[in-house]
Amino acid sequence: MRTLYFDCFSGISGDMVIGALIDAGADPVQMEEELKKLNIDEEYNLSWGKVVKNGITSTKFDVILTSKSEQTHEHSHSHGHEHNHSHVLHHNHGSRTYKQIVEAINEANFNESVTNRSLAIFKKIGEAEGHIHGLPLEKVHFHEVGAVDSIIDIIGAAILIDQLGIESVQSSAIPTGSGHIHIDHGIYPVPAPATLEILKGVPIASNDIRFELTTPTGAAIAAVLAETFGSLPAMTVESIGYGAGTKTFENHPNVLRIIIGEIQ
């Protein structure tokens, strides 16, 4: 069985997942074409390239928002408005509802496995955000994840995993980091409430890095896709990929490693 293992020794984020999948041999150009089905491609450009993190050559993936992107930092959870635009992701409130994202994924006509994986990951994040803010799923507005880059990270990861013919996913325990982060609502502890909520039932690994190692997007990708969490399973390794995070740490390579191979 063709299996993908997330080796999260430095946490996991959406861009690290895509970087690692590209690094392991997935085709980002085909992903870019598929993502055009969402009809928001004038809002972003994608870039990927090799970087070295503490001696490890890895792939850095970035979503660069264009000036046409309507994202703002004035996120709000209180809009109850319906948007009946032809492109369901086009509006100007600077945040996107869970419902709009689901509609957009369903209208894009991705193949079944890409659609199902994407919807499951968004639902995981939506339920976590709703739980924290005391809102039902259909009222949840994605601030962090509604941003174009997280839409790309989640659906892009689903496209690449499908493209690589992955039949099962496993993961290591997930380190979250520690300390504090600044988000829209103020100064929050790490892991952020949404990340911690998403990781319910997932083994969390301790480490003393005072930084947010795992984002809600990364946590949801691992929590939804991985069937089991633990050490590397017995497998015949076929390809390995390293996806770079944004930060660089003094004596710790900030990369996500993925290992793809056959489990007998």
Rank of each mutant, 00 (worst) to 15 (best):
Y5D: 05
A192E: 05
V52A: 06
T195V: 10
E34V: 03
T72N: 06
N254W: 02
L89V: 09
I132V: 07
K50V: 04
Y44W: 04
H79K: 11
I22F: 09
P203Y: 00
K68A: 10
A120R: 11
L21E: 01
H75D: 04
H81K: 12
R210F: 04
D15V: 11
I259E: 04
T236I: 03
L89M: 05
E138M: 00
S178K: 08
I204T: 06
F249D: 03
D153N: 03
Y242G: 05
P216E: 03
V51R: 10
S58G: 13
A192I: 00
S206L: 04
H141E: 02
V88K: 08
N254F: 06
S171C: 13
I183Q: 08
Q163K: 14
E138G: 04
N207H: 01
E144F: 13
D62H: 14
Y5P: 03
M31H: 05
H131W: 08
L65I: 11
V52G: 06
A205R: 11
F211T: 09
V237Y: 13
K50R: 15
A158M: 12
A120K: 12
Y44H: 12
G94H: 01
S239V: 11
D162H: 15
R117F: 07
S78K: 13
V148A: 09
L35C: 02
S113A: 08
N92Q: 10
I151K: 07
E127C: 03
T214V: 03
I166W: 08
G25L: 08
K36F: 09
K53I: 08
L4Y: 00
V224A: 12
V145L: 13
G179I: 06
L256D: 01
L46Q: 11
Y188N: 10
T97E: 07
A147D: 12
I174K: 15
T57W: 00
H91T: 07
H87Q: 00
F61H: 14
H90I: 00
K60S: 09
H77R: 12
A219I: 12
G261Y: 15
A24P: 14
L160F: 08
Y188K: 10
H75M: 14
L89D: 01
A234L: 07
R210P: 07
S113C: 13
L135H: 00
E43D: 08
N207F: 05
N92A: 09
K53P: 05
F9Q: 14
Y44Q: 07
T248S: 12
L232M: 04
S239F: 10
Q100E: 12
S178T: 15
T66H: 05
E82L: 14
Q71K: 05
M31D: 00
S113D: 05
F9G: 13
P253G: 02
L225A: 15
A223G: 05
I174S: 06
G11L: 02
N45E: 06
G186W: 03
S58P: 06
I159M: 14
G80S: 13
L213M: 11
T59K: 09
V29L: 15
I18T: 03
T72R: 10
N54K: 11
I166D: 01
A220H: 09
D41V: 02
Y98Q: 14
T66P: 01
T72M: 10
I159P: 01
N116Y: 04
E82T: 14
N109F: 15
Q30P: 10
A192Q: 04
G94W: 09
L4Q: 01
S239Y: 12
A220S: 02
H182E: 14
